[in-house]
Design a protein around this nucleic acid. Structure first.
Lengths: 180, 180
DNA sequence: TCGGGATCTTAACGCTGTAAAGGTCATCAA
DNA sequence: TTGATGACCTTTACAGCGTTAAGATCCCGA
């Protein structure tokens, strides 16, 4: 708080005139970050027609781009350190979930995606993108000859792109249940 | 540190006889958690024959089960708060990556999985499982009538199981590149 | 019997977030 | 014009944190 106060030119206790606590201040910052996050997503979606698979992919790419370009924000947004998990509905912009879900609904209706539950598909895509990002932020990979995964692309964006064949097979395949 | 000291019956500064800093103590705890994590994975793998798709799935399930049964550990293991990302190779048990990769190599050789880069496939599966877990830990979903995603299973384990058709299509499909 | 290391203590330091008390100034009613 | 009010800021202080410093106790080998 003292540092924040310095940055804006007041003493630390003065900040308590505007925020109840440090937590409240952080929450405010997070809220602003979520709004920027939502803009990333909607701008990405707007560039592709409703019902297209490309629109869904663009959302994934935007998700990853936001996380990489706003790492500090992203860490706070989806921090695992919070006491109680955040309710998705309470997020500004619905956390982008509604946007993704609708893009999927449209793609299904357009026949570009398998007729599965939109929520299931949305959750699946969210998991792929979110996992990719959180792993990238939490772990470091040595790229080179003698390393764990030499063939992998270095950047999360490229890695996401490399997933495309695998993921698309899942999204477009028929409806047969192939487990067990 | 004072609380930890109380728990083990000494004063806080006494802990500094055994650990250089609080961070060093936490690192030690994390290391122990990773070892337990490795046990979860190898026990799961041992229950299924090499080369089977089931073995790969079992690793995913074990990943999720560990995260859910050891939430505090998992939060620390893959915390996004650390200054510098953790090198995967430095992890005890290689963070389980080597185990997953080998299971995939075997499955490919046995013809149960598409002939793609094992690292790519491993990374993909890791992302799905990790994303699923981190989202579950960070966000809360209201399940019921008027909610964001009413059709989704409640537990991460069930959700992972529900992903099976989608994921399997990607893992088993032919080698054609279907992007763009 | 003595010295030294292992193990512990208490006291204290500098850092946090935050409460309490009070100062200054613009605004507005009497 | 005056006095009150509220917005906005200050300094001071407190309890908590991780950590250091200094010293006490005890065990063990020479």
């Amino acid at each position: 708080m003292r540092v924040v106060g310095d940055r804006v030119g007041v003493s630390a206790p003065a900040l308590y005139h505007y925020f109840d606590s440090k937590d409240a201040l952080v929450r405010r910052v997070v809220e602003m970050a979520f709004r920027r996050f939502g803009e990333y997503l909607s701008r990405a979606a707007d560039e592709h027609p409703c019902g297209s698979l490309e629109r869904v992919w663009a959302l994934g790419r935007a998700y990853i781009r936001f996380a990489m370009e706003n790492q500090a924000s992203f860490r706070v947004l989806f921090s695992l350190q919070r006491d109680v998990p955040r309710a998705v509905e309470d997020l500004p912009e619905g956390g982008g979930y509604a946007l993704l879900r609708q893009a999927i609904v449209d793609a299904i209706e357009a026949g570009r995606m398998r007729r599965a539950s939109p929520d299931l598909l949305a959750m699946y895509l969210w998991c792929v993108a979110h996992g990719l990002v959180t792993i990238s932020l939490a772990c470091r990979f040595e790229h080179g000859e003698d390393c764990a995964a030499p063939e992998l692309p270095e950047s999360p964006e490229e890695l996401f792109h490399a997933f495309a064949p695998i993921v698309n097979s899942g999204l477009r395949a028929g409806e047969e249940a192939t487990h067990d």
